[in-house]
Design a protein around this nucleic acid. Sequence first.
DNA 1: CTTCTTTGTTTATACAAAAAACAAACTAAG
DNA 2: CTTAGTTTGTTTTTTGTATAAACAAAGAAG
Lengths: 388, 388
Amino acid sequence: MKVKLTGDQALIKKMNTRIVLDCILNEEPISRAKIAKKTGLNKATVSSLVQDLIDNHLVIEGGTGESSGGRKPVILHFNHHAGYAIGIDLGVNYIHGILTDLHGNVLIERQESLKVRDHHTVLASLRLLIDTIGKQVPKSPYGLVGIGIGVPGIVDEKGTVLFAPNLNWHQLDLRSELETRYKVQVTIENEANAGALGEQKYGAGQNVANLIYISAGIGIGTGLILNNELYKGSSGFSGELGHMTVDLNGKVCSCGNRGCWELYASEQALLEGALPFGFENLEQLLAAADKGDKKMIALLEDTAKLLGAGAANIANIFNPDLIIVGNRITKAAKWMDTIVSQTTKQRALPHNREHLAVRFAALGESSAVRGAAYAAIESFLLQNETAE
Amino acid sequence: MKVKLTGDQALIKKMNTRIVLDCILNEEPISRAKIAKKTGLNKATVSSLVQDLIDNHLVIEGGTGESSGGRKPVILHFNHHAGYAIGIDLGVNYIHGILTDLHGNVLIERQESLKVRDHHTVLASLRLLIDTIGKQVPKSPYGLVGIGIGVPGIVDEKGTVLFAPNLNWHQLDLRSELETRYKVQVTIENEANAGALGEQKYGAGQNVANLIYISAGIGIGTGLILNNELYKGSSGFSGELGHMTVDLNGKVCSCGNRGCWELYASEQALLEGALPFGFENLEQLLAAADKGDKKMIALLEDTAKLLGAGAANIANIFNPDLIIVGNRITKAAKWMDTIVSQTTKQRALPHNREHLAVRFAALGESSAVRGAAYAAIESFLLQNETAE
DNA sequence: CTTCTTTGTTTATACAAAAAACAAACTAAG
DNA sequence: CTTAGTTTGTTTTTTGTATAAACAAAGAAG
C-alpha cells in the first residue's frame, strides 16, 4: 500500500539521465552542446550526466567532429557493446532465440523446432538454447545484461505464465525459475506485446506513440502501445481482440462465444479454407498461390478483407497512428497487404482513417524475438540508471 | 518540437505539492504528521508544502483532533469553498448546467431545452446559461475558477469542436470563444469522456484505475480511462466504439459501414423496435414496460443482451476493472442492468471476467455535467500548483 | 511529578540544476 | 599574421529543494 513515488533530487537526476541517454540513443553521433540545445538542459548539467554515463560504460567519446565556426565538438556514441541481451520467442512448435547488442542488433540467431509441449520438455530445450547462446556473449563491461522471453499466453506482472492455451501450461513461474538459474534479469512478455515492442523499436513503427500490433498466427492476439507504453489492462489480460465478436450469430468459437474475429482472419481461418483443396499448411497454400491458383488467391483476398474489418474496429476504438499486421501471416503479405489497408480505411470512420497507416510487420516473423530482447535491454538500462 | 519536460527542483515541488494535496483531498480530515506517514515525505517537507497550500487558500486548518498518546494533531481540510466551477452538458436537445464547489458538490442546477441547433442559437443559449449561473457564484478567494463543457462530438486538444454530427457543427473553436468572453479557463471534452470522468470521480467508478464508460444515448460513444487517465488516441478520436462492427453483414449504418454496435444497442435501437407499437420516445416505451407491456419488456431485454455482447468485446479488448453503462439508457436500468452484466460475463473470456464489474451509472444522466465540472476543477488545481 | 509519545517547527546539511565566468580550440576577416 | 568573434565544454558560484537531526510544545500514562 505504501508506495513511495514522491519526488526528490535522485528522481530528477534519474529522469534527466534518461533524457540524455535517450537523446544520445536517438541522435548519435551527437555532442554535449547539441544535447543541451535539444533537451533544454544546461550545458553544465549535460556535461555532468554524460560523465556519469561514460563512467558507467554506457557512452563513449569518439573523437572530434566538424567545427561549425568554433571549437570542434567531441562526438559521443552510445556504447552498444557495453553488454548483450538474449531474446527468445517461445512459439507453439518452435523456439527462436537471438543474441543482440544494446542497440538490438542481432549477432547470433538460432531456431529449434518443438515436438512435445509439456513444460518440462520445453523448459529443457529453452535452457539448452539459452546456455548455447549465453556461451557466445562477447567480453564486455556488463556481459549478459538480461533475458527477454515472449510466450504465447497470458502473463502477469510477476512474470508468471498464467495460461498458455496452445502449450497447455498453467501457472508456471517462468521468471523466477530462470532468474535463479542465470542470475540476470528476466522479462516475460506476451508474444503479441513483444511483437509490438519489436516493431516499435526496430521495425515499422519507429517513433510512433500509438500503435496496435496484430499478431495473426493460429489465433489472433494484439499488442497495444498507447502513449508510448504497453497497455496491459488491470490484470495483464488486455488485447484479446482475437475474441472480439464481429458476427453476432457467427461460427462457434472454442472460447464458448460466437463470431470471434480470429475465426475469420487468422492462419487457422486460411487453413480451414484451404483444407478441402488438399493443402495442409500455410506454406503449401502460399506455394499454390504463387503458382497462380485462383482459389487460393481468392481465399487470401477474402481473409484480408476480414482482417481489415477487424482492423477498422481497432481504428475506431483506439484512433492509433499505425496498425501493424504481424506474425505468421506476414508470409502472405504479398497477397494481402493492400487489401487489408484498403478495407480498413473503407470501414473506419472518416476522422479515424485520416492519419492512419496500416502496414505489415517490417521484421516479418522476428518482431517478437526482437521485442523480447528489447524488453531485456530496456529493463537493464532502467535499472542501471537507478544505481549511482 | 522542443518540448521542455526535463526535471528540476520546481518539478519536484510541484509533484510533491500535488501528492500532499491529493492526500488531503482523499483522506481529509488529516494531520500533517499523518500525511508524512502516508506519503513517505519528511515531516518538514509536508509542513512547508502545507503552508504554501494554506497561503493559496486551498487548505485550511480546522482545530485540533484527538490525541493518540501525545500532542494533539492540527486537523487539515481541503478548502472546497476556495472557488467554484461551472459544468455544462451540451446535449442534442438540451443544455444542462451546474455550479459546483471544488469538491464537485452541486450547488445550483439548471436545464434548458434546445429547439434549434445551429451554432449561433445554441451558443446564445449557452452564454445565457453561463451568465445566469455565473452571477450566483459565492464570494470566495478565487471566485469562478473554470468552465467545463461536454459536447456530443469530436474535440481536439485545443478545444475546437471538429465535428458534432447531431448538432451539425463543424470546426467551432468553442474554447477560445468562451475564454475571451469569460476570462477563465475553459475545458472542452467529448460527452462520453466527461461522463467517464464524472463516474470515476463522483459516481460508480471511484478509485478505479481502468474503466470504460459506455454512453448509450441516440448513438453510442465511450470514454476510456486507462491507467487513471483519459485515453484520447493520437488525434482525440478514440472511443468510437458505437461504430465497432459486431455483425459483419448486418444493418447498414449512416457511417457507411455495416453492423455497427450502436444500431443494436442504443436508444435509437430501442425506439426503432418500439415505433411499430406506437411509442415515439423512450419515456413512452418505459411507461408501457412499467405497466407490464410484455413486448416492450422483451425489447428492453433483447437490447440489453446486445449491449452486453459489445461490453464483452470491451472486456476482452481492455481488461478493465469496471464497465459503466451511462447516459439516457440509465432510465431503463431497472429492466436491463442484470441482463447486461450477465451477458457481458457470459461472453467475455474467463480471465477477463474474473475481476470485472459491470454497472449502470451511479449519477444517472448527470455523469457528463459532473465530469465537465470536474475537468474544470482539475485544470484549475494543476495550474494553481504551478504558480509559486 | 516524571517519563514517554506525538506533533509540528527550526536548523543544518546534502545535492541537483542552472547561471556565470572561464578556458580551449577553432573560423574568418583584414 | 593578427585580431575578433564563435563554439564547445569545464569550473565556480548560486539557488532551491528534500531530509535528517535537534528541538519545542502538548498531552498521556504511570
